[in-house]
Design a binder for these strands. Structure first.
Lengths: 296, 296
DNA sequence: ATAATCAATCAACTTTTTAGATATAAAATG
DNA sequence: CATTTTATATCTAAAAAGTTGATTGATTAT
C-alpha cells in the first residue's frame, strides 16, 4: 500500500486558507499563529509537484491546480470526518447526526414538522439538511452523502417510498404577453416564449428540468431564483404550486392555462440507503417521515 | 468545517497492523520501530470512542468496530493517495497511472495485447487492472474508482462503446446426469440440476448472475472458481466460451444443448468517465482499446 | 522447561511544530 | 507621496510530538 505523503492537517489548512481568504484569518479560524499557517502551507507546496497557491501582490491566490485540488481536499476531509462520525455511531449504537438531501422542488413544511417531532423525541441526534437540485440530489444518493433523500426522480436501481406529490404548474407574470393569446395555450405556442428552467448543478451529466424545447431559455439553479425571475417578468416557468400559493393569490403571478396537462404532478420519493446500513435513529426518523400526509 | 482529529498516519498505521497481523511486522513494513507503532495505535485508540484493536493473548485482534472502520480507513487512504496522483497529473499534464476495471467475464487476451502496445509507446504511464465482478464493476464506474471500465452491463445514465461480445454457454462435467436426459434440454428441466452462479461481491445490492431459478445453487465470486466447480462435477454453469475452449476440446467439460437459446451473447462495453475528466494518456489508451476486434 | 513471539512501557533523544518578533512588500488612504 | 494598513515570510527559542532501543511481562510454541 502507498502511504499518503500529505497529511489531513495540510489539506485542512489549505482549505481553510482558501475559504477564509488569507493566512491570518485561517490562523484565527484554526486557533494557530499566522506563522504556523505559513509553515504548513510551505510544507504542502514543497510536497506537491506544482503550487496550489501563489502570492499575487500581497494575497495568496489559488492556481488552476489549486482549484482542482481544493475540491478533492474538501471531499477527503469530509470522508475523514465521516469515519469519525461512524466511529461515534458504532460506539453508542445511535447516530449523532442524520443527513437528509431534499430536492429544492419539495415542499419543506410537512417535512420540517416531522423532523421537529423527531428532534424533540431524540434531541441527541442532530439533523443536517442539504438542499439539492436535480442531479445533485441523485449524487447525494449514489455517493452516499445523505442518509435519507427526498427526490422527484428515482435513480435506477433504487427503491423509494412515494411520500406525496408536487404539483407543477406553468406560471408567468400577469403582464406577460402569453396571456394575450387565447385562453388555452398549446405546448407549441408556449415554445415561443422565454422559459426559465432549473438547471443542473450536479457533476455527473448536464440535464435540464425543462420539458419544453423553448427557443429562448434562461437557466437558474433553484426554484426560488426561478420564482424571482418569473416575478420580474423575464419568462414563464413550471413551478411547484406550493411555492407560489401566495403570489398566485395576490396576483403577482398568474397560472397559464395549458390546452392539455393543465398541471404536471411529480411524485416525491423517500429513498434511503440499503436497509443493512441504516442505523436505529435513521430508522426511527424514517418511520416519522413516512407518516407525512400527501401534500396539497 | 470540522477538522478531523485522527490523522492519515494513524489510519495508515492501523491498516498496516491489520494487514500485516502484528505490530512488529507493521513496524518493519513502515520502517519504524515497534514502539512507534505501539505509540501511534495507542493515540488512535485514545481518540476513538471505542477500541478498534484488542489484545487477545499476545496478538492484537480487530474488534467489530475495528472491522467496520478498517474498510473506511482503506477508502480514506485510497482517496488521499488519489489526490496526490491527481496533483502529479495536473503538474505534468500526463497521467502517471491509468486504472481499468474489467469484469471477470471479459476475455483478457485482446485487451492485454492493446495494453502492451500502449505501454510500450508510453512507458511512463502505469497500468492498474482491477478484476471485478457484477456490481463491483458498476461500483468502479459510479464511484470513479477506474478510468476505463469493461462491463457487460451498462449502468443507467452511462454511455459505452460496444467493444465485442462474450458467448455464454451452458456446460457441465461429461459425467453429469444432465447428459442422460434427451439430447436437447429445456430451461425447466435444467432447473432440477445444481447450478453454479457467480455471486455479487459488490456492496450496493445483491444481484445474482444466474438466469435460471435453480432449486439448488452454489454461488462463487468469479468465473474461474465457477469453472473449477463445474470441472469437479458439482453442477452446471453458464460460462464464457473463451474461458473454457481447452476444457471443451479435451473433453473435461461438455456443452449442454439447450432447447432454445443455445448460447447467450452478452455485449461488452467500454465505458469511460465524462469526457471532460479524461486525461491525454487515458484518451490515447481508449483509442488503442477501441481498435480491439470483436472477440470470437 | 525453554525458547520464541508479541505488545507495553520507560527514559533519552530527535524532529517537528508553534508562536512571537520582526522583516518585507503591496495596496489603500489621505 | 508619505503613511497606514494588510498580508506573507523568516528567524529564533521553546514546546510538543514522535522515535528508538532496552526492558518487562505475558502468551504461545517446541
Amino acid at each position: 500500500m502507498q502511504i499518503p505523503k500529505i497529511s489531513l492537517e495540510q489539506w485542512a489548512t489549505f482549505k481553510t486558507v482558501v475559504d477564509e481568504g488569507s493566512f491570518a484569518k485561517a490562523a484565527e479560524c484554526l486557533h494557530k499563529s499566522q506563522s504556523s499557517i505559513s509553515y504548513i502551507i510551505n510544507n504542502l507546496q514543497a510536497q506537491l509537484p506544482s503550487p496550489v497557491l501563489q502570492i499575487q501582490g500581497r494575497k495568496a491566490e489559488l492556481t488552476d491546480t489549486g482549484k482542482a485540488l481544493y475540491r478533492h481536499a474538501k471531499n477527503l476531509l469530509d470522508s475523514a470526518s465521516a469515519i469519525e462520525k461512524t466511529a461515534a455511531y458504532l460506539a453508542t449504537g445511535w447516530e449523532n447526526e442524520i443527513s437528509l438531501a431534499i430536492d429544492a422542488i419539495v415542499h419543506l413544511d410537512p417535512i420540517f414538522e416531522k423532523l421537529a417531532q423527531f428532534s424533540n423525541q431524540y434531541p441527541q441526534t442532530r439533523i443536517k439538511i442539504l438542499e439539492t437540485t436535480l442531479s445533485a440530489t441523485e449524487e447525494a444518493l449514489l455517493e452516499k452523502k445523505a442518509d435519507i433523500v427526498f427526490t422527484p426522480k428515482l435513480p435506477p436501481g433504487f427503491l423509494g417510498t412515494p411520500i406525496g406529490t408536487v404539483d407543477m404548474i406553468a406560471v408567468a407574470h400577469p403582464d406577460n404577453s402569453i396571456f394575450k393569446l387565447s385562453n388555452s395555450i398549446t405546448s407549441e405556442e408556449l415554445k415561443q416564449f422565454r422559459q426559465i428552467v432549473i438547471r443542473d448543478n450536479g457533476i455527473r451529466r448536464q440535464q435540464d428540468a425543462g420539458w419544453l424545447g423553448s427557443e429562448q431559455r434562461w437557466t437558474v439553479t433553484n426554484p426560488s431564483t426561478s420564482i424571482k425571475a418569473v416575478m420580474a417578468n423575464i419568462g414563464f416557468a413550471f413551478l411547484p404550486h406550493s411555492f407560489i400559493k401566495n403570489e398566485l393569490k395576490n396576483g403577482q403571478l398568474k397560472q397559464i392555462n395549458l390546452a392539455q396537462d393543465a398541471k404536471r404532478v411529480l411524485p416525491i420519493y423517500l429513498v434511503t440507503k440499503d436497509t443493512d446500513f441504516i442505523g436505529p435513529a435513521t430508522s426511527k426518523l424514517i418511520d416519522y417521515l413516512k407518516t407525512i400526509k400527501p401534500m396539497v
